[in-house]
């Protein structure tokens, strides 16, 4: 080949200091958890590269491309609006028009559902990578979280358009949406880690997922407001971490109100406890993943 002459004869040794890695039988210790996290941070470029690719590959060879990120929640909004305002009458929250209330909730629900649908199979569908090269496996489900978050950002301006159309005012309370999305992301990440790791051994998870998501969606105030839930079931209902997140996301964005910190606190607490547990569980499964997958 003509390029032979370009080949450098000397290979400069890598400048980065060497790290000593010790691999033993799978076990759990806090020190290992910390070292796992430091390895993950070392691989952050892979997370970035894979997430970018995830988005690119998803919309490659499709005509609408990234617009699919909008089409999905928007068409769901049209369908549910049709059903729940013309056929069955469902109350809206406050005096916000039903489509606006619905689209806001669907935005964040789509983030949840898309992530789980893709991430659950994230390890299994990458078995060719998982059995051939090493990298922290949690990156695979995480990339689906990032890609779905990207979709959420793409689909958000449509909400502004709807609010403008229905003359719903936007206030500074909307800034609370940022910490709400952080809590949401923590929760999604936990569920994605658990499901994707469990799916390696039990493919039933993937089978049950569409049904589970359907049930979960109706157990979350999306097509109806939280106020429509009878008072005596509220406490039980609030144990679904999605409730506090969805309800308050809607409250701060379209109802121009500050969040209900009690409701949001429950969601945040559950997410904060679940995330480290999910990570430990994932790392435990990861050790033998290549043997089982």
């Amino acid at each position: 080949m003509a390029s032979n002459s370009v080949l450098p004869n000397q290979v400069e040794p890598s400048a980065a200091p060497r790290r000593i890695k010790v691999v033993g039988a799978p076990s759990f210790s806090p020190a290992r958890l910390l070292s796992d996290l430091s390895v993950l941070s070392h691989y952050r470029d892979l997370l970035y590269t894979l997430s970018v690719h995830r988005v690119k590959v998803r919309y490659k060879q499709s005509i609408l491309g990234v617009a699919w990120a909008i089409v999905q929640p928007f068409s769901l909004m049209l369908i549910y609006t049709l059903i729940f305002t013309f056929i069955a009458r469902v109350p809206t929250s406050g005096n916000v028009p039903y489509p606006v209330m619905l689209y806001t909730a669907l935005l964040i629900w789509t983030y949840f559902a898309t992530t789980l649908t893709n991430a659950t199979n994230g390890l299994v569908s990458h078995s060719h990578l998982v059995t051939k090269v090493y990298f922290p496996r949690e990156i695979l489900p995480l990339t689906y979280v990032v890609a779905a978050l990207f979709d959420l950002i793409i689909a958000s301006p449509v909400l502004l358009g709807l609010m403008f159309y229905y003359r719903v005012p936007l206030t500074f309370n909307a800034l609370y949406a940022i910490p709400i999305i952080v809590i949401m992301t923590m929760f999604i990440t936990s569920v994605a880690l658990i499901f994707s790791a469990a799916q390696v051994r039990f493919r039933d998870i993937g089978m049950a997922l569409p049904l589970l998501l359907q049930i979960w969606m109706f157990a979350t105030p999306i097509v109806y407001p939280l106020s429509a839930v009878p008072e005596r079931f509220r406490t039980l209902y609030m144990l679904n971490p999605m409730v506090g997140v969805v309800e308050n996301f809607r409250r701060v964005l379209v109802e121009a109100a500050p969040p209900n910190f009690y409701e949001l606190g429950i969601s945040a607490l559950i997410a904060a406890i679940l995330l480290p547990l999910a990570y430990i569980f994932f790392k435990h499964v990861e050790a033998t993943i290549a043997d089982v997958i």
Partner: peptide, 27 residues
């Protein structure tokens, strides 16, 4: 060695950045 799987017992120490070509183009 490539850390694709973990040992059942015993310990492996790796000093430095390791790159494995287990199957060409698998990634």
């Amino acid at each position: 060695l490539a850390n694709i799987t973990t040992p059942t017992s015993g310990e492996i120490s790796i000093n430095g950045r390791l790159s494995a070509l287990i199957e060409v183009g698998s990634g």
